[in-house]
């Protein structure tokens, strides 16, 4: 099987300080990978390097494109990379307002990616927006409301709808449930899990919440000080951690 994303020796330095270094992994279609680690461990830096928001100092991020097969997205031309991020890629930000246009209605937010790839039929765009609102459990009657009138959980679900409407193959998520209260988190996780399965999505989820990765991620990568210290099957890493840092991380989770 051809991997969807192949990451080879990614490194990003901030001056003399290591952002992340020597990161390599393969992600296969339909796989969900979690990246965990404490704040400052380099997980967000890595995610941004992978998603093309930051330029890594070294390494390759090879994506299996629909038309040209595997291409290094680091050296790919900018228009091509931007096209990818509007079509085959999606990025779910921790703060919904970073990923939404707050002055544009929910329908317009969802429709933007469709219009960006050339859809020019208002009725059809609107129908798909309504369909997606339904899929992320937002009432149809809210389609013309701006996200400023939405709760945090709704904003996050709207951001997900806006990202998934073009049927991407790879979704990057940066703390998708961060800052939401737990009941809202559970609903969002359930939703994400369903969408990942239905659409056969591959995803890379950065979080510091081990419960989130246990429920969503097939695989886990544990980072500390910019280095990957352990990788493996999610339940194996959490139940039988090998590295000292992972053991500390797992044993530090508060029990409810």
């Amino acid at each position: 099987m051809q991997s969807l994303l192949q990451v080879n020796n990614i490194q990003k330095m901030y001056g003399h300080r290591i952002g992340c270094t020597d990161v390599s992994f393969d992600l296969y279609p339909g796989e969900v990978m979690g990246i965990v680690g404490e704040s400052g461990s380099g997980k967000s830096t890595l995610l941004n390097c992978l998603a093309g928001h930051l330029e890594p100092d070294a390494g390759e991020v090879i994506f299996d494109t629909r038309d040209r097969g595997p291409v290094d997205t680091v050296t790919m031309s900018e228009p091509e990379r931007r096209m990818l991020s509007r079509t085959d890629w999606a990025f779910v930000h921790q703060h919904a307002r970073d990923g939404l246009r707050m002055s544009v209605s929910a329908g317009g937010n969802i429709g933007e990616r469709l219009m960006a790839v050339g859809d020019r039929h208002y009725g059809q765009i609107r129908d798909r927006a309504v369909d997606w609102l339904d899929r992320v459990e937002i009432e149809e009657s809210r389609v013309d409301d701006r996200p400023t009138a939405f709760s945090g959980g709704m904003q996050q679900r709207l951001q997900i709808a806006r990202n998934l409407v073009t049927g991407p193959r790879l979704v990057f998520m940066d703390e998708p449930t961060g800052g939401l209260d737990v009941s809202v988190q559970a609903r969002l996780l359930d939703l994400l899990r369903g969408l990942v399965r239905e659409m056969g999505l591959s995803a890379i989820i950065v979080t510091h919440d081990l419960a989130v990765v246990r429920l969503l991620a097939d695989r886990l990568m544990v980072m500390k000080s910019g280095h990957v210290v352990e990788t493996g099957l999610t339940d194996q890493v959490l139940d039988d951690p090998q590295h000292a840092y992972t053991q500390l991380l797992v044993s530090s989770v508060l029990q409810v």
Binding site: G232, L233, D235, Q236, D239, D240, Q242
Partner: peptide, 9 residues
């Protein structure tokens, strides 16, 4: 059992 299931390494 956990070893067989891959839950333990």
């Amino acid at each position: 059992m956990r070893l067989i299931y891959g839950n333990y390494l």
